[in-house]
């Protein structure tokens, strides 16, 4: 499994064509405690950069973009009951949605952990 990052502060962890997406610990810290998280329906086709989910703090709503093209394959239902899970473990239990990646080659255009950190 490999994890890639985006400039818009998403991470995507890939195992073959199956991937899990969330927001980075840095983004989570910047946003503060979340009060609501929602993803588009399972089965929705998304292009890279399409809004696939939204995270909301008290004050602001922020779109979460699909890092690459694919099909949404499920939402982290634990976040419906407890959106603060993202704040506690943004890059683990606080994952937001799963997706099937259309073209694994697209991942090459994303950032590595080192590249993301150096932003």
């Amino acid at each position: 499994m490999t994890t890639y990052y985006t400039k818009s502060h998403e991470w995507i962890r890939v195992d073959g064509e199956q991937a899990t997406v969330g927001i980075t610990a840095h983004a989570s810290e910047e946003l503060g405690e979340l009060v609501f998280v929602e993803a588009k329906d399972e089965g929705t086709d998304v292009a890279a950069g399409d809004a696939a989910a939204v995270v909301e703090s008290v004050k602001a709503a922020s779109d979460i973009y699909a890092p690459v093209a694919g099909t949404l394959a499920g939402f982290n239902e634990a976040l419906s009951d407890d959106p603060t899970l993202v704040g506690r473990d943004a890059e683990g239990e606080g994952w937001i949605f799963r997706m099937t990646v259309s073209n694994p080659d697209d991942l090459k255009g994303l950032l590595t952990a080192e590249q993301y950190k150096s932003l």
Partner: peptide, 13 residues
């Protein structure tokens, strides 16, 4: 309204 990019406008960026 609506959502903004994750480059959260008011959080210091």
């Amino acid at each position: 309204s609506a959502s903004s990019r994750l480059e959260i406008e008011w959080t210091g960026l």
